[in-house]
């Protein structure tokens, strides 16, 4: 007897273990398991944690209730596309850092056209009606418009965290009157550049 792992070795693993493995895989690899076999078709949808990989600027998913975490800049990254494809997003965290930004600028420009500002403001990417929590860590002035755009589309937002560096914090404060009336908790901090 070949032990407990019969023919399909992976499917014999207990469900929670499969989830655990999928949770630790990069999102792309987790999604790719959907074509292994029928049994694997929907497994990846159990993942609870999504760290959005900026090397995949065009990627977005239709999975309810998850959070997206962006590391890097929102510009050029198809953020609009991502949000348009995530009407059920509950939690969004955007982290930027100068160093990452430099890296990604060169990489992403080659692959995708920069997002048009007017497009961001006027696009029909709908309402993030389930977004409850939104954190922005160190965005620059030019990215504040994205924040504004997100706030305007998040009527259910309850927690807003703004962790800006220096002067940008003041600009962020200007946005707050436009934030959703349902915000119950506001966290403001002036932060130094994240150390990557």
């Amino acid at each position: 007897m070949p032990g407990v792992c019969g023919h399909d070795l992976l499917s014999n693993l207990p469900g929670p273990l499969i989830e655990e493995i999928l949770n630790w895989l990069p999102l792309r690899d987790a999604v790719r398991t959907s074509i292994l076999s029928r049994a694997w078709r929907h497994h990846w949808k159990t993942i609870r944690r999504l760290d959005f990989d900026l090397r995949d600027p065009d990627s977005y998913l239709e999975k309810p209730g998850y959070s997206l975490k962006f590391l890097g800049m929102a510009e050029n990254l198809g953020l609009v596309q991502v949000l348009a494809g995530s009407p059920h997003l509950r939690r969004l965290e955007i982290i930027c850092s100068a160093r990452k930004r430099d890296n990604y600028c060169t990489k992403t420009r080659r692959r995708s056209a920069p997002v048009n500002e007017t497009e961001v403001m006027n696009s029909t990417w709908g309402v993030l009606k389930e977004l409850r929590s939104f954190d922005i860590v160190y965005m620059t002035d030019s990215e504040i418009k994205y924040v504004e755009s997100i706030l305007a589309r998040a009527p259910a937002l309850e927690t807003l965290g703004v962790h800006f560096k220096g002067a940008s914090l003041l600009e962020a404060l200007n946005l707050l009157p436009r934030a959703s009336p349902n915000v119950k908790m506001l966290q403001l901090s002036s932060t130094d550049l994240p150390d990557w």
Partner: peptide, 25 residues
């Protein structure tokens, strides 16, 4: 789990099927 992640990460679906005897149905 770490080992499993490192074995699956970056592989083509067919490579994963071969490694774990998954039959593509």
């Amino acid at each position: 789990v770490d080992k499993m992640v490192s074995m699956i990460q970056g592989k083509y679906p067919q490579e994963i099927r071969d490694m774990f005897n998954v039959v593509n149905d």
